[in-house]
Design a binder for these strands. Structure first.
Lengths: 201, 201
DNA sequence: CTAAAATCTGAATGATCGTTCAGTAATCGG
DNA sequence: CCGATTACTGAACGATCATTCAGATTTTAG
């Protein structure tokens, strides 16, 4: 297996970038290779030249976006000391990263809800080991063990937190909504939802 | 404008039902009229005979599903007395209704994230007046006015609640998850997040 | 019972899809 | 500078798509 040339690397990046724009703007259904190529100003057949097939391009796109996101969030979270602070950072940095990259999140949604396995099942819908949920779940468990958090089902709580984050990002472009105020609302919300109160002692 | 015949009504219902099954199982991309017709055991051209076009069929499908859902939830909520109780009912009945109709929710997702306007924008992504969010927002406002809830941004809180509900339903089929335990977790979660505590008095 | 209207089918149409491929252009190693 | 490899294009292929339509079948109305 030989290394990729400089040109190949650049073209692949360019095509993935055009795919993100096209997916975000027109949706998966209309994001044909012809449309993506048009946006990149290359001929359609150059895409199957650099990628095995369309699924391969979608795979590259989804993994590039989600890896960058989870890496950013995990690096920020690692700087927090208490579990409580780490939870705040998780919420804040998740929203901040994608809130400033709405096209990337829309493209992610399009792929996640459209690409299927041969048997028709969704290929990228998260499972229990999803890299955006599992670290969050572990963070919550750690906070329970050191006594910062009350007792709750960490998996359910992690799902709920992700739901509030994805919900905002999904309707960000469409509706009136303010990233900053929503972020603070969520931090306050889950602070109250996770902390011990006098009755729990 | 003449009324619809019995046959027409029955056929339309049958086609919508087949569309729901097909969307849930194969996704929007592969849910062609041919596939839907095959599932309904009719010829493909019968669909454009009963519906103006494919978008019209999707419109009927999405409105049938979401109307039934919101109606069910609103009727249940209206039976609650306090705002706190109504919030519990909103969460519980939203999850209970769709939790027992996973195909309907998947079909809803497929349409909402796939059908586009001519300019490429998502046609059915909720806006600020979305019928699943606005009643919830009003419920929260009422609870703040009568002193049951603490002060928070009702719109943001409503969005967060919907996010936790939709998140569970979206990954229900894929991952290990328990509807009942998640429901109780959410009720507890938002009870703590919305109530006044001694420091708020 | 009969004629008109409603319902339904299967074939055909034109468009677009992903992918292949022969051939051209650009780049690179010696 | 030249041959070989890499990069790229545009045309062509077969498949599938939504929609139309002429004609067949069934239902309805008088």
């Amino acid at each position: 297996m030989t290394r990729r040339s400089f040109i190949e690397e650049a073209r692949r990046a360019q095509i993935v970038s055009a795919a993100i724009d096209t997916l975000a703007e027109m949706g998966y259904v209309k994001a044909s290779l012809a449309q993506i190529a048009k946006r990149a100003d290359i001929s359609t057949s150059l895409i199957p030249y650099h990628f095995k097939d369309k699924d391969d391009l979608m795979e590259q796109t989804v993994s590039e976006i989600s890896l960058a996101w989870t890496t950013y969030v995990q690096e920020k979270v690692a700087q927090g000391v208490s579990a409580r602070e780490q939870l705040h950072i998780y919420i804040e940095s998740s929203l901040a990263y994608m809130g400033t990259r709405p096209k990337h999140f829309l493209a992610l949604l399009e792929i996640v809800f459209s690409v299927r396995n041969a048997d028709g099942s969704l290929r990228y819908v998260m499972d229990a080991e999803d890299p955006s949920v599992l670290p969050l779940e572990n963070l919550l468990l750690a906070g329970q063990q050191n006594g910062e958090f009350r007792q709750f089902d960490a998996h359910n709580m992690a799902l709920a937190i992700r739901g509030t984050i994805d919900q905002f990002l999904g309707q960000m472009n469409k509706a009136r909504s303010d990233l900053e105020s929503y972020t603070h609302e969520l931090i306050e919300l889950f602070d109250r939802a996770t902390r011990k109160d006098p009755a729990d002692e």
